[in-house]
Lab assay of single mutants.
Amino acid sequence: GLEHMADEEKLPPGWEKRMERSSGRVYYFNHITNASQWERPSG
């Protein structure tokens, strides 16, 4: 619901949600550090 939507907005600075086109899996990418990970970043 709306709570989940708001929660997605609160990623740490630099992080954004991305989708891997080949598999459709969602991952997280940090455009500041060029880091990427499957787990939702905390902090």
Rank of each mutant, 00 (worst) to 15 (best):
R25K: 09
G43R: 10
E20R: 03
Q37G: 01
N34Y: 08
A6V: 11
G1M: 11
R25H: 05
L11V: 02
E39Q: 12
V26I: 13
E9S: 08
E3M: 07
R40Y: 08
D7F: 10
G24R: 05
D7I: 10
F29Q: 02
E16I: 06
S23M: 03
E39A: 08
T33V: 05
S22R: 12
K17V: 08
A6M: 10
G14Y: 08
L11Q: 03
W15M: 00
R21H: 15
Y27P: 00
G24K: 06
S23A: 03
E39M: 07
E8Y: 07
S22I: 14
N34S: 10
K17P: 04
I32Q: 09
Y28L: 00
K10W: 14
W15L: 00
D7A: 10
V26T: 08
N30R: 01
G24M: 06
R40N: 06
K17H: 04
M5K: 09
V26F: 14
L11M: 05
M5W: 12
D7Q: 10
R18D: 02
Y27Q: 02
F29P: 00
Q37Y: 03
A6D: 13
R25T: 05
W38A: 05
M5L: 12
E20T: 06
R25I: 05
R40P: 08
K10R: 11
S36Q: 11
S36H: 07
H31Q: 09
N34T: 06
G43P: 11
N30V: 01
W38L: 07
N34Q: 14
M5N: 13
L11W: 02
N34M: 12
R40A: 07
R40L: 07
H4R: 03
E16T: 04
L11H: 01
F29R: 03
Y27L: 02
R25W: 04
W15Y: 01
G14I: 02
L11A: 01
P41Q: 00
T33L: 06
E3H: 13
R21Y: 15
W15Q: 00
G1E: 11
M19L: 15
G24L: 05
A35N: 08
N30E: 02
P12I: 02
V26R: 03
H31L: 14
A6G: 11
L11Y: 03
N30D: 03
R25V: 05
W15F: 02
F29A: 02
L2I: 13
R21G: 15
Q37T: 06
M5D: 13
E39T: 09
E16W: 02
P12K: 01
N30Q: 02
T33D: 04
Y28T: 00
E20K: 04
E9L: 07
M5P: 12
E16N: 02
R40M: 07
G43K: 08
Y28F: 07
D7E: 11
N34A: 07
R25E: 05
P12H: 02
D7N: 09
E8Q: 09
F29Y: 14
R25N: 05
E9P: 10
F29T: 02
L11G: 00
Q37A: 04
T33A: 04
A6W: 11
G1P: 10
G14L: 02
F29D: 01
V26M: 09
S22L: 15
G1Q: 13
L11K: 05
N34P: 02
G14E: 06
L2K: 10
P41S: 01
W38M: 06
R18M: 09
N30P: 00
P41R: 00
F29E: 01
M5A: 14
D7L: 10
F29H: 08
S36P: 04
M5S: 13
R21E: 15
L2P: 12
H31Y: 14
G1K: 11
P41N: 01
Y28P: 00
G24S: 05
L11F: 03
I32K: 07
W38K: 04
S22T: 15
N34R: 10
Y27M: 03
H31G: 05
E16F: 03
N34V: 04
Y27W: 05
Y28Q: 00
H4L: 12
S23F: 04
V26H: 08
G43Y: 14
D7M: 12
L2H: 12
R40E: 04
S23Y: 03
P41I: 01
E39Y: 07
E3F: 03
P13D: 10
G1T: 11
P41K: 00
Y28M: 00
F29N: 01
N30L: 02
M5H: 12
R18H: 09
S42M: 10
A6E: 12
W38P: 05
I32Y: 13
E20P: 02
H4Y: 11
E3S: 11
G14P: 09
S42L: 10
R40F: 11
R25Y: 05
T33N: 07
H31P: 06
R21L: 15
S22H: 15
K10V: 12
Y28I: 00
W15S: 00
K17R: 09
E8P: 08
E9D: 12
K17D: 01
G14S: 04
F29G: 01
I32D: 09
R18W: 05
P41Y: 02
G14A: 05
I32H: 07
W38N: 05
T33I: 05
K10D: 13
Q37I: 05
K10S: 14
E8R: 06
L2V: 11
V26K: 04
P12D: 02
I32G: 06
E9V: 07
S23L: 04
E3L: 09
N30K: 00
G14K: 01
R21T: 15
R21I: 15
Y27G: 01
P13T: 09
H31T: 14
H31W: 13
Y27V: 02
P41C: 02
P12E: 03
G43V: 13
D7R: 04
E20M: 09
K17Q: 07
N34I: 04
M19N: 09
R25S: 04
R40Q: 04
L11P: 14
S36K: 14
W38F: 10
G14H: 09
R21W: 15
D7P: 11
E3K: 07
R18T: 04
